[in-house]
Amino acid sequence: MAFLTIFTPAYNRAHTLPRTYESLLAQDCKDFVWLVIDDGSQDNTAELIHGWQAQENGFEIQYIYKENGGMHTAHNTAYEHITTELNTCIDSDDKLAPGAVSKIKTAWESVRNKGYAGLIALDADFAGNIIGKGFPADLRETTLGGYYASGGAGDKKLIYRTDVINSVPPYPVFDGEKYVGLVYKYTLIDQQYKLSVLDEVVCEVEYQADGSTGTMWRQYLNNPRGFAFLRKTAMQYPTSTKRLILDCIHYCSSSQISKNKEYIKESPRKLLTVLCTPAGWVLTAYIKKKANV
């Protein structure tokens, strides 16, 4: 039985999915399942996946279609169906690095009985450059929030135990919105577990102009309740005073955008929220300017 599920949320990515698939075919260890969550694609994603399922790949390919709901809802669907011990997300425009599955398997076998939530590894761009910063040479374990609080930077590849990722609540869904930051689950897990550090590149990434990273200013306006929820969670588990204040300002701004008049009452940091409200209005004006509204 496979030890790892590699899941890929996909929305109209038939033009990039083949390179993801080719990177899986090239793995020297095929002890994994590839689960594609089609988030309401209108291109030929389904045709592509069904064609690959009919081939001899050396690994199982699973395909689930759902109505479009955003990245976080695709993750919810994935977690409902994963049965392997570990799982990791490889986006539909990314590639699994050569030998990544072998590296994950070897690293996990050496720490699987030590109570970790999983592994944290490196992402690189297609030219091999580490995204953000690497890991300090002596870092053996960390929480995700602890890594960034201590000066870390850039997206990292997270490989979680499936029982752990499912031990915290699913991402909430807000009517009319399609974004809740994935870090919500990771923040809750940080309160109970650490991650073992795998100082290897396991994913090669390319950020698309129409992806969530490239459209963030518009996302703030289109998904204010989702962002307010995320900031409220972060305010309950601050990693620094500076981060707490920034999250509170964003919470005020998102609440103002959503026209939530109860946001001070609902805040876990009521006094700070009162103090940050003027800065929230300034941030709201800046977001609207950046989004050309």
Rank of each mutant, 00 (worst) to 15 (best):
A2V: 14
A2S: 15
F3M: 14
L4T: 03
L4W: 04
I6L: 13
F7K: 08
A10W: 04
A10Y: 04
N12W: 02
T20H: 01
Y21T: 13
Q27W: 01
D28I: 01
D31I: 04
I37V: 14
S41K: 09
Q42Y: 04
E47W: 07
H50V: 15
Q53A: 08
Q55M: 09
N57D: 08
G58S: 12
F59C: 09
Q62R: 15
Y63G: 09
G69Q: 05
Y79R: 14
E80L: 06
E85K: 11
L86H: 08
T88W: 05
C89L: 07
D91T: 13
S92E: 06
L96F: 02
A97Q: 06
V101L: 09
S102H: 07
K105N: 06
T106L: 07
E109K: 15
N113R: 12
G115Q: 08
G118P: 06
I120R: 06
D123E: 15
N129Y: 10
N129Q: 15
I130K: 03
G132W: 01
G134S: 07
P136C: 14
D138Y: 09
E141S: 07
G145M: 12
G146V: 10
Y147L: 14
A149V: 04
K156Q: 09
K157T: 11
T162S: 13
T162P: 07
D163K: 07
I165S: 06
N166F: 04
V168N: 11
P170Q: 02
V173C: 12
D175E: 11
E177P: 07
K178A: 05
V180P: 01
G181E: 14
T187D: 13
D190K: 06
L195G: 01
E204Q: 08
V205D: 08
Y207I: 15
Q208T: 12
A209T: 15
D210N: 15
S212W: 09
T213K: 12
W217E: 15
R218M: 14
Y220L: 10
Y220H: 14
Y220Q: 12
N223P: 02
F229P: 04
F229I: 08
A234M: 08
Y237W: 05
T241I: 12
T241H: 04
I245E: 00
L246G: 06
I249D: 00
H250Q: 09
C252P: 01
N260P: 00
N260K: 01
K265M: 10
S267Q: 05
L272E: 00
G280R: 03
K289P: 00
K289F: 04
A291Q: 04
N292P: 00
N292T: 11
V293G: 00
